[in-house]
Design a protein around this nucleic acid. Sequence first.
DNA 1: CGCAGTCCATACTCAGTCGTATGGTAAGTC
DNA 2: GACTTACCATACGACTGAGTATGGACTGCG
Lengths: 192, 192
Amino acid sequence: MNATSKPERNRLSAEDWELAALQLIAEQGVGALAVEALARRLGVTKGSFYWHFRTREALLQATLERWEQYGEREIISQIELIADPRERLPELFRRVAHELQPHRVYAALLKALDHPLVVPVMARVSSRRTEFLETAYRQAGLAPADALNRARLTYAAYVGFLQLNFTLGLPRLSHDEFDAYVEHMIATLIPA
Amino acid sequence: MNATSKPERNRLSAEDWELAALQLIAEQGVGALAVEALARRLGVTKGSFYWHFRTREALLQATLERWEQYGEREIISQIELIADPRERLPELFRRVAHELQPHRVYAALLKALDHPLVVPVMARVSSRRTEFLETAYRQAGLAPADALNRARLTYAAYVGFLQLNFTLGLPRLSHDEFDAYVEHMIATLIPA
DNA sequence: CGCAGTCCATACTCAGTCGTATGGTAAGTC
DNA sequence: GACTTACCATACGACTGAGTATGGACTGCG
C-alpha cells in the first residue's frame, strides 16, 4: 500500500490488473472489461496483460474471486459483536445504507448475470448474506419459517433497491428521503 | 392473427421482427440480440432485416416501445375493478405471482441496464408501477408518506426477487415454498 | 403482358477484440 | 560484464458481427 497506488511508471502485478478490472466493472460493467481498454487505463499495452493472465476470462475469474473473498465480512463480523440480538438488524440496515462503493460493484455484477462466470459467484454471495439475515431474524424472535421468508424478502428488497435507485437512478432520493426510506424498512421488516 | 402466426414461408413485417426480438430477449437477454442470429431464427437472412430496419438499435428501440405499450395494463385494469380497496393488494400479489412470461422479459431487461436504450424504458415502467402501488397502499389506509415508502419497498422486493430467484436461480423454491413466500409478503407488507 | 413495388439472398466491406509471436529493455545475479 | 528473469511494445492473424451494394423473385395492377 505504499508505492503501487498511483499509476506512475511502475511495473504492474497481477493484483494491479485485478483491482483495475474491479474498478472498471464498477464503473462500466462487465461487458466493458476489454483487454486493450484496461491496458490503456493502466498506461501499458496488451503485452503486459498476457504475461500475467492466460486469457481474458482468467482475469475476470480472478477478479471475481478476489471480490468474493475480500468484499464481505467487514460489516458482518462487526454486527455479530452487538450484544442485544434485537439491535443487530436495525444497526445492520443503517450501516449498510451508508456504504457506497461495495454497492456499486454488486450492482454492476447484477447487470452482468448473463455471463456464466458471475452467476455462481453472485449466487454464493447472495445466499450467504440471506442466511446471515435468516439467523439474525431468528435471534430477533421470529419463527424459523418466518425468519427464512423474511430474510428472502429483505435481501430481495436490497437487490431491487440497487437496481431501481442505483442503476436506474429512478426516484433520485434526497438524503432525508433516503433516511426516511431506511427507517420505514426497519419499521416494516423488523419485528418490534 | 390468421396467417402470420406460424413461421412458414410467409413474408415478414417489421412487427414480426419486433415480436421475435422480444422473445429472443426473454430467452437469452438483450446482448444476444444479433441481426444474423435473429434472421436465422426467422428463416431468412440479413437482407430482410435491413429492409425493415435501418439499424440494430432501431429494432431494439421499436421492440422496447412495443413492450412498454402492450406489456402492462392487463392486470392493473383488472385490479382496479375490485370494489374493496383492502382486497386489491393481496389479489394483485397473488395474480402477479402466477404470471411467468412477463417476468421473463422484465428480468432480461434488468440484466441489460447497461444499455442506454433500455434505461429510460425501464425507468418509466418501474415508476408507473410504483405509483400504482402507492395509490393502492393509500387506499388501503396507509398515510401518504408511508404509502410511498411501502410502494418503493414492495416494488424493490419484486425486482430483487426476479434477480435472485429467476435470473440467479438461487434457492430454487418449490411450488409450496413459493406460495408460502407470497403469503409472507402479503402478511408483512400489506397493512391488516 | 409488362411494370413497379415489396421482400429477400448473396457477397462483400469495415471495425473491434481476442490471442500469438517475437523482439526489446531494465534490474538483478554470478 | 555477460546472462538470466520479469515485464512490456509491436506487429500480426483470425474471428465476429454490423452495415452496404446489388441483383433476383414474387405479387398486384394497369
